[in-house]
Design a protein around this nucleic acid. Sequence first.
DNA 1: GCTTACATATTGTGATCACCTAAGCCCCCT
DNA 2: AGGGGGCTTAGGTGATCACAATATGTAAGC
Lengths: 232, 232
Amino acid sequence: MADEAADCAVTLAPDRRRVDETLGEFVHRRLRHAIMTGRIPPGRALTIRGLASALDVSAMPVREAMRRLVAERALESLDNRRVRVAPMTPARFAALLETRVLLEREAALRALPHVDNAALAQLRILDAADDAAVAAGDIGRAIEANFAFHRAFYILAPADALTPLIESLWLQIGPFMRAALEDLTLHYHADRHAEALAAIEARNPAALAAAIEADIRDGIGHLANSGALLAA
Amino acid sequence: MADEAADCAVTLAPDRRRVDETLGEFVHRRLRHAIMTGRIPPGRALTIRGLASALDVSAMPVREAMRRLVAERALESLDNRRVRVAPMTPARFAALLETRVLLEREAALRALPHVDNAALAQLRILDAADDAAVAAGDIGRAIEANFAFHRAFYILAPADALTPLIESLWLQIGPFMRAALEDLTLHYHADRHAEALAAIEARNPAALAAAIEADIRDGIGHLANSGALLAA
DNA sequence: GCTTACATATTGTGATCACCTAAGCCCCCT
DNA sequence: AGGGGGCTTAGGTGATCACAATATGTAAGC
């Protein structure tokens, strides 16, 4: 009898369905966005019927989207067959952070030789969009823009095998990025994207790896020692 | 009109459904096994109805299993909405190989401090099972046993974030492992698992990393320079 | 002979329903 | 008053159906 939309507390952006996008893909994209921008509280059980009514679609596309998100580790499936955003623990957070550093440093190094002028220009545009979102205080858009910058860079490597794995890590850390950015905007922080872009332009692998690692650690690393993890 | 089971050429092992395993999980496990042991030819389109009739289940569990396998990168979904095992290219193979080395070396180093006597004994059992499968010429079982050995080791690390990513890489390389092992059994090869176990027992990180890397490269690395990739 | 248009068959997508398990709830008993 | 047992309800699983998009096979036309 309870309002299922309120029960799931999912207030999704009124995104419109794209052409040639199936309903299942649309639902997946909206849920993915909601998870990565911290709109779904960790620990709370999500139900197929609840999300279906909240999204005003039938159960079938929601089922497929949830199954896919579980496979991508954005959601976890409990033994009771309940599905939720996995709660964070300090140990898991540390493991995800170190894994991000390991994979993204390598992905950056693999992409570096394949950056041409057009790609560099595109990266500057994405970085500017990120800066604009941060300046506007739109944390959800800032999170998306930050990942879009990293992604556009990494996929420049031919036969890239790392980016899909990295995106899984993003989905696992995503729910806690909002707290990280809310905290981050209170302090001054170096513009690690600018450092990365400079290293790319200079074709300097060591400086690039350092900038990527610093970007990751600056963004979320300080959360490991704060109480924000358990509160989120 | 064509015989759909033959059309899909999926002759799955007559595995029995486990208790408390849903039909969808059962189908996923069988398809996963079939893919990883090279039983499904890359490039051929898989259909829901074809697999459903081959497995003698309805379409629904197959749909979910295929979706999940696409998310795990065991299968790829084309723009035409056809689903297949991704064909291999030399560039993709090289990327997957280097990524395996990067991730598994790190996973081994993270697991090393958490190996106790019981775990070491278990690893020896799994290694023996692998040796037995190789000796018996059962390539499918040897592939599974090899991965089981690596997996049991890596998951010893608390809050392990790497193993799910590594398993995705295994699923992508899996379809070509059969050719690798058929080739490998023709030659002498060092027992890298034994070297790894010795390094674990000696608590020697450098030797362990070297053994893991050598194990991976020995097993499949030589395929990169052979014509087996395109033939498979 | 090769291409193109059309008709047919196949397949993925989405909706709906039945069933069964699991969780929540209340009442009763101690 | 607290704990245990049965009842009620909710939710996941699996099956089936309708529809739209895609592929395939055929035949006509250049």
